[in-house]
Simulated scan of single mutants.
Amino acid sequence: MPPYRLPLYHRQSPVARCINFLCAVLLTLILIAGVIFFVLWLSLRPHRPKFYLADFSIPSANRQSGLANLPVSFTVNEHNPNQKIGIHHEEIVASVFYGDQLVAKGTVMQPFYQPPKGDKPVVGQLVAAGPVPTDPVWGRFSAELAAGTVAMRLLLTSTVQFKVKIWDTKQHHMKVECDFRMNGDGTLQQQDKNKQCVLYF
């Protein structure tokens, strides 16, 4: 029976050791680059703006001849929560609805730039087109108005682009939806003041 022998240690060739060293360095560099890119992505990732309904009114909304030609006024406060990212807005178009009935529509803001951590009021001045007594929804609208509370909806639409340092992101179509209730005198109910609106991108 041949004597038991320990396996001999085979040293790696210089070429194999060099390849292993280069692979280790490459993997380390990839890991470091991945961490750096992840941190940069977190710090430069745009956060969507926030909108709050501050005020709304239709003076003399309870008149018997309907809302046609009455002024519609509102204020929506916009806040940019980003530390280092600004927001370019194209023109903002506002639409006011009672159910599916369009009450008023028009452009309320021209293009503007919202700086980082900035706040800007979106102030709208529109003219109501209805409802009027000849509209099918007038009976329900006037009854709710007489009862002192009417569910309304304000939509703001625009196109926005985030400005990160020296480059701009792609354009996003933005829709802001503010659901609220109006008092019988055409003013915004107190509980809906400064209510956050829903933002769709």
Rank of each mutant, 00 (worst) to 15 (best):
D119G: 08
M1I: 10
I58C: 06
W41P: 01
L188K: 08
L67F: 10
Q125R: 15
C178L: 03
E90G: 13
L29S: 14
Y4Q: 13
W41Y: 14
Q125L: 09
T75W: 00
L53G: 07
H10I: 13
W138H: 04
V198L: 03
A16M: 10
L40W: 13
R17D: 09
T149N: 09
L199S: 09
P71V: 01
G106E: 04
R45N: 14
N194C: 01
V164I: 15
L102I: 11
D168C: 08
D185C: 00
I32C: 14
V122G: 05
Q161I: 05
A128N: 02
V198A: 04
H89E: 01
G34H: 05
L27I: 14
F97N: 02
F180G: 08
Y200G: 01
T107V: 04
L156Y: 04
Q161K: 09
I87S: 08
V122M: 15
S60A: 07
I58L: 02
Y98H: 11
S158I: 02
F180R: 01
L42I: 06
T157Y: 02
T75R: 11
A61F: 02
C23T: 15
L145V: 04
I36C: 09
G184T: 00
T75F: 06
A16S: 12
L199F: 07
H10G: 05
P115K: 09
I19G: 02
L145E: 09
P46M: 11
N183I: 00
A129E: 06
K163P: 02
I36M: 14
Q114W: 06
V127Y: 04
N82C: 08
K105N: 09
Q64Y: 07
K195P: 03
P59K: 03
Q161C: 04
A151F: 07
K105C: 02
F37Q: 15
R48M: 12
P49L: 04
Q12R: 12
K165D: 05
Y4I: 11
D192Q: 04
G118Q: 06
A104H: 00
R181D: 08
W167R: 03
P116M: 10
I32Y: 13
R153L: 07
V176N: 02
V39C: 12
